[in-house]
Amino acid sequence: MSEGTRNTSVPVTRGGRMESVTQAFVTHRSLLFTVAYEMLGSAADAEDILQETWLRWVGVDLDTVRDQRAYLVRIATRQALSHLRTLGRRKESYVGPWLPEPLLTAPDVAEDVELADSVSMAMLLVLETLTPTERAVFVLREVFDLGYDEIAEAVDKSPAAVRQIAHRARAHVAARRPRGVASAAETRRTVEAFQWAVQTGDLQRLLDILAPDVVLLTDSGGVVRAALTPIVGAGEVAHVLGRIAAAELRPTHVNGDPALIVRLHGEIDTVIALRVDDGRITGLYAVRNPEKLSRLGRETALRR
């Protein structure tokens, strides 16, 4: 459906127009943020996209807009694509592993399995391996179920080209996506056992919970001390985790995944998102860069 098709409804007054513009933006704000965040992996940059989308949206003639949701998504996608290229250059000079900015998410995000999977740390890292256009097409098609015609307008490609890009991106992601998702009950038991093992310093229990090939990624941005390369293997990861036994650990959900917030002297020091498969932890994503921890004091609304 083309957003540019003229609507034959009676034009609204100037004051009524601004009210309609604002209402449409507010209605779709969480959706637009989610689109931008899934494309960029940065909440701060997603907020910038929202601002740029709003500035362009207020100048649109609503009488020419048939589908406000699709039109707003198109604006946000185009802005995000431009930002992606800038972010790529920034990541090239990033110190140590780069992880997405963690978001404290409400339980309803975890209940939407597809949404939770799409914003998980593991999936966002897979999306990092796509080209900007592939990422945009994959997100809009697979996560938000937009039609090929709508996506084509958003990425300035023909519908036929978008279908090919979607097929290529889908195959790329399928070959790299994490293993099957564990049940909620299994995940809860594993995370509780993991927290207990870390806090009590029970090394053997910790080794039992960690998968043999578990990977720990730590994002410090070079601002605080952290490993600058991935740590692989249960023994190596357990050794590192032993250093936080004295810290305060609080269970929560980050990006739809179970996570632990690590506090030292009452301040958030690290957030660790956990990936659970078959009753064992296969991935740990530890964000320590202070610039990425500012949103952990409040939940972020994510919507499809």
Rank of each mutant, 00 (worst) to 15 (best):
V21Y: 07
R66M: 10
D45H: 01
D219W: 09
S183G: 13
V113N: 05
F194R: 03
A46L: 06
L55C: 06
R170D: 10
L50A: 04
E3M: 11
L32A: 06
R170M: 10
A185F: 09
G16F: 09
V215K: 00
V26E: 11
D202T: 02
L241S: 00
Y94F: 15
E38D: 07
P107Q: 12
L293G: 05
I165E: 00
A166D: 11
V119K: 01
L241I: 02
M121A: 12
A36V: 04
T105W: 00
S183C: 09
G16Y: 10
L241H: 03
R243S: 15
T218N: 01
F194K: 02
T77G: 09
Q164M: 12
T64S: 11
L104K: 12
E128T: 13
E128A: 13
Y71E: 05
W98C: 07
P97S: 05
R135G: 06
T13Y: 02
E114R: 14
I75N: 00
T270R: 06
G15M: 12
R74T: 14
R14I: 15
P258D: 06
R179H: 08
H167L: 14
G297P: 07
T13F: 03
D67G: 03
A185K: 08
W54T: 04
V254S: 04
E186N: 05
R250S: 14
D45K: 03
E111P: 02
L217N: 01
G147N: 12
T229S: 11
S20M: 10
H239W: 06
L260C: 07
A46I: 05
T300Y: 03
H172Q: 12
H265K: 10
P230V: 12
P100T: 03
H239Q: 14
R69W: 06
A247K: 10
H28L: 10
E134D: 08
D67W: 08
T270I: 01
L284Y: 07
A197T: 02
A286T: 04
V35I: 15
R176W: 04
W98K: 07
I209S: 02
I165G: 02
L103C: 13
D45I: 08
A245D: 10
V137H: 00
G59C: 02
A184F: 10
V137M: 02
D208E: 14
E134L: 01
L99I: 08
V119S: 05
R189G: 00
T200I: 12
V60Y: 00
L87V: 15
G147P: 07
E101P: 10
D112F: 02
V139M: 05
V137P: 00
E128C: 08
P290V: 06
L103V: 11
T187N: 05
E299W: 01
G221R: 03
A175W: 03
L206I: 04
T13M: 04
A175F: 01
A160Y: 02
P102L: 09
L84T: 12
R250P: 00
R135M: 07
E186C: 03
V119Q: 03
D202P: 00
G297T: 15
P258T: 07
L87H: 02
V139H: 04
G297S: 14
D219G: 02
P102A: 09
R135Y: 06
A43Y: 08
D48Q: 07
T133N: 13
I261F: 10
A211H: 06
R303F: 07
G279C: 07
I231M: 09
E3H: 14
R250C: 01
A80G: 05
L40W: 01
E111R: 15
V191Y: 11
A301V: 12
